Amino acid sequence: MSDSDAESKTAGSSAQIAPTDAANIEPLIHTVRGQQVMLDRDLAWLYEVETKNLNRAASRNADRFPADFRFQLTKEEDEALRCQIGTSNAGEGRGGRRYLPYAYTEQGIAMLSGVLRSEVAVQTSISIMRAFVAMRHLLAENAALLERLHGIEASQAALKRSTDERFDRVFRLLEGEVEKPQRIFFAGQMFDAFSLLADLVGRAEREIALVDGYVDVRTLNILAKKQDGVAVTVYTSGSRLTQDDVDVFNAQYPKLTVCRTGSFHDRFLILDGVTAYHIGASLKDAGRKCFGIDLIQDEGLTKLLVEKLELLNERSAV
């Protein structure tokens, strides 16, 4: 089998393809090193010349074919292209080509028509240029389509997050767990106030900090609603809670620590160091008179409050 015959069979195209049909030329355009190129064997078939003669003509006019017009494939690039277009290596070493193919960019192909100097070369180059233009349009359309698809995916992801949040709020509402930023209890609503405070205490997963100047055993009844293993620190200026009270509580609901401080006037309840409530009455008196419970929604204020309590805890732990 001659060199030209072997290459005609490995051109990745049937001999029935019309050389001047731009639509049929497009499958012969490949991407190598980030550029759209055509291989020498495919160009030789289209120009109706032997591959060696095509490359010889380009080599004789090397000054017209810089590296961005024409370059020789590496062995790895050649093997990758063969796998991509399904070209066999069986013919190599037994009459097939013994050198790596050359790739011609769009500019290099345009230069070939002048070097080959034939009517076929001119007409074929026109068809090839049209094929390159059509390919660029296709790539541009695909890029725009991919961009739209990415936009749709991003919108769907945002919609999913928003929908999940809405469903989460609905489920929490059904379970009676919706957090209201502000609650007011009027005189006599002692059970309702106790129930809410006990529910808040039960939400903590690691630690509870309570700032209340008037803590006694009634306050401990609310703190006893915490989860097992949740540590409690009480910051108080009063003396109604004795060490015996603390010891009895810790015997069943460890661990409670009391810090004596007179730095606070208002009452605060902080859960896990991140969720803080401002409470208008001492926990032991909740519901006896009208009072309010406010969720502190400023994360910076909550962080500042926690830092202040940690400093007090280091200085005055009992």
Rank of each mutant, 00 (worst) to 15 (best):
L220C: 04
Q107Y: 03
A90L: 11
Q243M: 12
C83P: 00
R97W: 08
T275G: 04
L43R: 01
V246C: 09
F69E: 05
D63G: 14
E307W: 08
F132T: 01
R56M: 11
L223F: 06
G287D: 02
E307H: 14
E76P: 02
D78A: 05
A144L: 10
N61S: 12
K225L: 08
L256Q: 01
E147T: 13
L112E: 02
V234S: 01
V178F: 10
G287E: 02
L116V: 14
Y102R: 01
K52G: 04
L301Y: 10
V274C: 10
R169W: 02
W45T: 07
V232Q: 05
T105I: 02
I222Y: 01
Q156R: 12
A231N: 08
R41E: 04
D192V: 01
G86N: 13
R41D: 03
Y235C: 10
G273V: 04
I25Y: 00
E48A: 15
K160M: 03
S263G: 10
I184Y: 09
H278P: 00
G91D: 09
G262S: 14
V246P: 00
T219D: 07
T87Q: 15
N142T: 10
A187V: 07
I270C: 06
S195G: 09
V230K: 01
E48L: 09
Y253Q: 09
A121F: 04
G229H: 07
T275N: 09
L39R: 01
S88L: 13
Y47C: 03
F167Y: 13
T257Q: 11
D199T: 13
A158M: 08
R70P: 00
A90E: 15
D272R: 07
V32I: 11
F65P: 00
T163R: 11
L116E: 03
D21Q: 08
R148D: 12
R161P: 00
G95C: 07
D285V: 10
F171Q: 15
L116W: 02
H265T: 15
D228A: 15
D199M: 09
R240H: 11
N142V: 11
G273I: 04
D3G: 09
Y277N: 05
G96I: 04
A224I: 06
M129C: 09
V274I: 08
Q297W: 03
K255Y: 06
L54Q: 00
Q243F: 08
S125V: 03
R60C: 12
D285R: 14
G34R: 04
A62E: 14
R161C: 06
I128F: 02
K52V: 08
D21K: 14
V178L: 15
L312E: 14
D68S: 15
A80H: 05
V318P: 05
S88R: 15
L241M: 06
G202R: 14
G280T: 08
V217S: 12
R98F: 07
T105P: 00
I184E: 15
G96V: 02
L159R: 13
T10I: 07
E77W: 05
Y47W: 11
G96A: 09
V170E: 14
S59T: 14
I296G: 01
K255W: 04
R169D: 10
V230C: 04
R172K: 14
Q123T: 12
Q252S: 11
G292N: 15
R136K: 15
F71A: 03
D216Y: 08
K289P: 00
V122Q: 12
Q107V: 06
K9D: 05
L312C: 08
L28H: 04
L241N: 02
G280V: 06
A22D: 07
V246A: 09
L196F: 08
K160L: 05
C290V: 13
I184C: 11
